[in-house]
C-alpha cells in the first residue's frame, strides 16, 4: 500500500474528528447551562486530541517538514475528507446532540475494529480513542432519551433534528478507492460491515427515546470525496483564518 493511500485513508477518519471538534468548540460558552457546556467542551477536546494524533502521524508519513498544522489548516476544501454529517451546523441543541449521537455510534464501532489494524500507530490511536468515544456515546445517547422523552417541545425539536440529519448517516458506510486499498491490506476497517450493527443501535436508542425512525431511503453523500455542503466553506474560513492571513509564521 502506498503512503498516499494510507494518508488519504487517515484523512477519512481524522477529518471527522477535526470538523466535529470544531463544531463543538463553537458552542463553548453558549451551552444550556455550565455543566453541559463543560461536558461538550470535554468531547471537543477529546476529538481534537485524536485529530492531532492522526495528523502527527500523517505529518510523519509525509516527511519534508510537514506539520500537523499544515494538514489541519492548509488544505483546500476539496481535500478535507470528512462526512457531511459532522459539518452540519449547530442549529439548536437537538441538532448538536443528534449529530453527536449519529457520529458517536459509528465512531465507536469504527475504533473497535481499527484497534486491530495492521498499522500499529492507527491501532494505538484507536485503542486510546475507544475509551473517550464510549463516554461520548453514553453522553449523547442519554441526551437523545432526555430530549426525546422529555417535554413535547423537546420531543418535536429533536425529532426534527433526527429527520433532517438521517440523510447523512448512510455516507458513513461508503468506501472510497483509498479506503478499499487500506481494507485490502489489513490496515483499514471495512465500514460496510458495521452498517447493520449501527442501525440496530441507533434504532434501539431512538425507540427508547420515543422517537420515530425516519423511513426515507434517500441519502446524501459527497464529503468523503471532498464535495461538501455549503456550510463547510464558512467553517474553514474560521478554522484557517490565521494561517491564511499570516502565512508561514510560527504561533
Amino acid at each position: 500500500m502506498k503512503n498516499e493511500n494510507l494518508i488519504q485513508y487517515i484523512y477519512g477518519i481524522a477529518d471527522n474528528a477535526l470538523i466535529l471538534g470544531q463544531r463543538l468548540s463553537e458552542l463553548c460558552g453558549h451551552g444550556p447551562n455550565l455543566e453541559t457546556d463543560i461536558a461538550g467542551t470535554n468531547m471537543a477536546l477529546d476529538l481534537l486530541g485524536q485529530t492531532r494524533s492522526y495528523y502527527q502521524y500523517v505529518a510523519q508519513l509525509s516527511g519534508e517538514g510537514t506539520t500537523e498544522d499544515d494538514i489541519a489548516f492548509l488544505r483546500t476544501e476539496r481535500q478535507y475528507k470528512n462526512v457531511l454529517l459532522v459539518e452540519q451546523p449547530n442549529t439548536h441543541f437537538g441538532y448538536v446532540i443528534t449529530r453527536q449521537f449519529f457520529y458517536d455510534v459509528f465512531h465507536l464501532l469504527l475504533l473497535q475494529e481499527l484497534q486491530n489494524s495492521k498499522d500499529e500507530t492507527l491501532a494505538a490511536i484507536a485503542k486510546k480513542g475507544i475509551k473517550e468515544v464510549s463516554y461520548h456515546q453514553r453522553f449523547s445517547s442519554d441526551w437523545i432519551k432526555r430530549l426525546g422523552d422529555g417535554t413535547e417541545v423537546s420531543h418535536s425539536k429533536v425529532q426534527e433534528a433526527v429527520d433532517n440529519l438521517w440523510k447523512f448517516t448512510d455516507e458513513l458506510f461508503h468506501t472510497t478507492e483509498d479506503d478499499k486499498v487500506a481494507i485490502k491490506s489489513g490496515i483499514g476497517v471495512d465500514v460496510t460491515q458495521l452498517k447493520s450493527a449501527y442501525y440496530e443501535k441507533i434504532k434501539a436508542i431512538l425507540e427508547e427515546a420515543t422517537l420515530n425512525i425516519p423511513d426515507h431511503k434517500w441519502f446524501r453523500k459527497g464529503g468523503k470525496e471532498g464535495i461538501h455542503s455549503e456550510h463547510m466553506g464558512y467553517l474553514l474560513s474560521d478554522l484557517q483564518y490565521m494561517q491564511r492571513t499570516y502565512p508561514d509564521m510560527k504561533w
Partner: peptide, 12 residues
C-alpha cells in the same frame, strides 16, 4: 435558548 433543554431533562 437552553430553557427547553433544561426543562426536557427535568421532565425526563
Amino acid at each position: 435558548n437552553g430553557a427547553w433543554v433544561r426543562d426536557a431533562a427535568m421532565a425526563y
